[in-house]
Amino acid sequence: MSRVATTWTIGVLVLLWVPIVLLAAFSFNEARFATTFTAFTLDWYVRLFEDRELRGILVNTLVVAGGSALLSTVLGTMAAMGLRGTFAGKRVAAGLVTLPVMIPDIVLAISLLVLFRAGGIPLSLGTALVAHTTFNLAYVAIVVSARAESLDPSLEAAAMDLGCTPTQAWFKVTLPALAPAIASGALLAFTLSFDDFVITYFTTGPGDGTLPVKIFSMVRHGISPKVHALATLILTGSVVLIVLARALAGTPKEVRT
């Protein structure tokens, strides 16, 4: 039984990772249309960096990811703070806060698109930033709340007994205790925004694409090692960010999505 399960697990892991490894390998392949590896080259990466348009798109991506990470970290932390403890209506409030994680991307994207159109707001990087903040807020709230719930509320009370105002107690006791979780949430938000395709695709202006949107349109023109290279870079970037975010959050007892 356990041997079968082990073999099965190895098989599933191989299936999960083979395409990713192949993609990375072929981004260093010299031949353009080959299904076999001919010779090692960094040429595709060089071409990538020489692409002016791509640099503009990278800036767009970073602006949206940075802006929405900042905004959603503030809003998400506030949500986590407000959801501590038990109170009437907590289930409804928690349900609303986590809803952006649960609904399909396309529902959030289209609903916002409809709202922007109804309000006569032209699509731009700004509208994409608003959309990203909406889903990121939920992720930050979940990450910070996991930490906030385990925080001893008597710490804050003790600080106030010792003469702190509630504001001082929050900044001197609660915030430092939550800081790793907040930083982890911010990194997560940045990564999710950096990686998002569906929501950006529908809520950004025609000239304001981000990297995943660019990949989508490049794929329509056929697979090329240049896309391989771009995809590999994005992948490496997000993996580094995620490892960093996890290290900051510490190792929780229970694994969460």
């Binding site: 990686d195 794929v219 391989h228 992948l235 993996v239 995620i242 694994v255 999505t257």
Partner: peptide
Amino acid sequence: RWVLFLVVLPFWANLLVRTYALMTMLR
């Protein structure tokens, strides 16, 4: 912890990039 990490990591990696990788593999 390592194996869990291997399972979860692709989830955080860009979905579009992963789909693109599958396209390359399935072609």
